[in-house]
Computed example of a mutant assay.
Amino acid sequence: VGEETFRLAQQGVDEVILVSTDEICAAIKDIFDDTRSIAEPAGALGIAGLKKYVERTGQSGAPLIALNCGANINFDRLRHVAERAELGERREALLAVTIPEQSGSFRKFCQTIGKRAITEFNYRYADSRQAQVFAGIQLSEGDEEKTRIIAALQEHGYPVIDMSDNEMAKLHVRYMVGGHAPGLHDEILYRFQFPERPGALLKFLTGMAHDWNISLFHYRNHGSDYGRVLVGIQVPETERPQFLRYIQELGYPCCAETDNPAYRLFLDGSR
């Protein structure tokens, strides 16, 4: 804060409200939704503070004004804003969950979550005992709903860590889940398009043979009609025809990626 700005603030400002990066991103989205204008983060700061003030005081029916100025934002920065806006609105929870590394665990985990929309799912096989899952779950009732989801998962024996406010997890770790899984056999890789609706993932998992193990899963909701999913599945060579029949009956558009050089270089666990 400049010297003159600080002097004027001392004379005329009654209170300072602190907001997070996620709350600023949510305010940028609010402005866009209402006016189809895109504000820079500093320009949306007043809206973010106003929302927090109303949430804290419960005030309604009174005229409230926020100054919205500045459009110093570029297209690359919008990607970060879009990624964080749902967290700022408390409409998404990011959870790190430990599940048993065995066939069917993924399906049971999704059944525990229920019919809530999964916004993100990152997992890679690490060892034969436990699997670490990084999951985003859509919320309609904010932090209260998130607390209920965590409690339900813990009641089913899943250790859970809330990553919704973990800056390192949001900036870096969510993009780094993966890598080679040494000693992994019979893995095939497919890229699917799932209908963007609750239950689509569970339908995919329910129809799978019980001894086929999911060894890799990557998904992120991007607001389109279809979710793009990358799946690694351990299917013995003798059962590949059965697997091909299964995905044909499933009807989701898909593409085999086992021979893709990106998979061979960075994800293949058979080497």
Rank of each mutant, 00 (worst) to 15 (best):
R56N: 08
S103E: 11
I113L: 14
Y190S: 05
Q130M: 11
F266P: 02
L216C: 04
S224E: 12
H222W: 12
V160K: 14
Q102N: 13
V173A: 10
F204H: 02
E145P: 04
G251L: 12
D268H: 05
T238I: 07
P261K: 08
E167H: 12
F32I: 01
Q130Y: 12
I188R: 11
L184N: 09
I31M: 05
H80Y: 04
E15K: 13
I28P: 00
A26N: 07
N166R: 13
L139D: 03
R7L: 14
A9S: 15
T98V: 13
R271L: 10
A117P: 00
E141N: 14
F134H: 12
R240M: 14
S20V: 05
Q132D: 09
Q234Y: 01
G104I: 09
H80W: 03
I47H: 01
G232W: 01
E141H: 11
A131T: 09
V97I: 11
C110K: 04
L64C: 11
F121G: 01
Y125E: 01
E40P: 03
Q111M: 15
I17A: 02
A131Y: 02
D14T: 06
G88K: 02
T57R: 12
F106A: 03
G199I: 11
F32D: 02
S164G: 11
Y158P: 04
Q242G: 03
L230S: 04
Q234P: 00
T119M: 05
I47Y: 00
G104S: 13
K170D: 06
Q111N: 11
R77N: 08
D165R: 15
G58N: 10
L139A: 06
I118R: 00
T119A: 03
L67S: 06
Q242S: 13
V229I: 10
E237V: 10
P182L: 08
G251I: 11
R228D: 10
A9C: 15
K52I: 07
C254Y: 13
L265F: 04
S215Q: 03
T112E: 05
S224R: 13
V173E: 11
G61T: 11
S140H: 14
